[in-house]
């Protein structure tokens, strides 16, 4: 018996050293429900260890995208979350071709009604208004319903005199809704200005990716702007810039680290520390208990 084990161990050792030697850092077909491949280092990570690690790659530290529900679980004290406007769904009022199908597909695949979830909850006992966007829902694009939910959240924070946190992730305005989606940028910015005039604290949390109309409105208007590591943050798309200037973009362009260096965000915080950092910041602003 001992012999057998020894032999098996040796075989395994040999196999693992072979694996090391032949390591290919390319995308592989991996059963999605057991392993997940890191978008950054392409290492296959067992799901259980990813979950334990807040969806941060244990090998390279890359912060993978997480759902809005997961983000709320990470930030909000258990049993304190109260969601509102959860039933609001976008309507294809302009009869834009293919929009109904896209909405339906997004709703089916995410189990969400729209690309943002809003509610009130506690972060280490401090009550806050929290909006969380989800990039899986049509790239987190902002149409009228997303704009209205966020705007109503700002107004609620104003009325209840609560701090406001918006966790951003978005490709920008929802093109299928045309000019109305662009106008949401102005609408939310105006509401945030009123909130600020009243002395309200707004913390913007930027996560991968935050671009286009969302970056050019509420994402950049936080009293404090926090980002997760390596998040893509910028206004114009990389392809558009490349097509315009006809040259290669520098490495690390439009990452959180780039923005920190250029002076546009306050800090980069690892996902594990996010809750505590936000809770400290809330306390520093006399957050209500």
């Amino acid at each position: 018996m001992d012999q057998l084990f020894k032999k098996r161990n040796e075989e395994l050792k040999e196999f693992s050293s072979w694996l090391k030697r032949h390591k290919v850092k390319e995308k592989k077909e991996i059963p999605e429900n057991i392993f997940k491949q890191c978008d950054h280092c392409h290492e296959s990570i067992p799901y259980f260890s990813l979950i334990e690690n807040d969806y941060v790659c244990p090998k390279c530290g890359y912060h993978m995208k997480i759902s809005a529900r997961q983000r709320i679980r990470d930030l909000i004290d258990e049993g304190t979350w109260k969601e509102y406007l959860e039933k609001e769904r976008s309507q294809n009022t302009e009869n834009f071709p293919g929009y109904d199908e896209k909405l339906k597909k997004a709703q089916m695949s995410t189990g969400m009604n729209e690309a943002v979830i809003c509610g009130v909850g506690k972060i280490n006992q401090t009550r806050v208004v929290l909006c969380v966007m989800d990039s899986r829902f049509m790239m987190g694009s902002m149409g009228k319903v997303v704009g209205e939910k966020i705007c109503k959240s700002v107004e609620l924070a104003m009325r209840k005199k609560l701090p406001l946190i918006i966790s951003c992730t978005s490709g920008g305005a929802r093109m299928q809704e045309g000019i109305d989606s662009l106008m949401q940028m102005a609408k939310i910015s105006a509401a945030l200005k009123r909130f600020s005039n009243q002395g309200g604290l707004y913390i913007a949390l930027l996560t991968h990716p935050t671009t286009g109309g969302v970056s050019a409105s509420f994402a950049m208007l936080g009293d404090i702007i926090i980002s997760e590591p390596q998040a893509l943050i910028g206004f114009a798309g990389k392809r558009v810039i490349q097509d315009t200037i006809k040259q290669e973009l520098p490495e690390g362009f439009q990452t959180a680290e780039f923005l920190l260096q250029k002076g546009f965000i306050d800090m980069i915080v690892q996902r594990h520390d996010l809750k505590n950092v936000i809770s400290d910041l809330l306390k520093l602003h006399g957050g209500r208990l």
């Binding site: 910015s189 050019a216 994402a219 950049m220 943050i233 973009l249 250029k262």
Partner: peptide
Amino acid sequence: PGIEAEERGQAQAIAE
């Protein structure tokens, strides 16, 4: 849409 525009905060300038 340019490198310098992003470096100098196009998004922030519009938001402001």
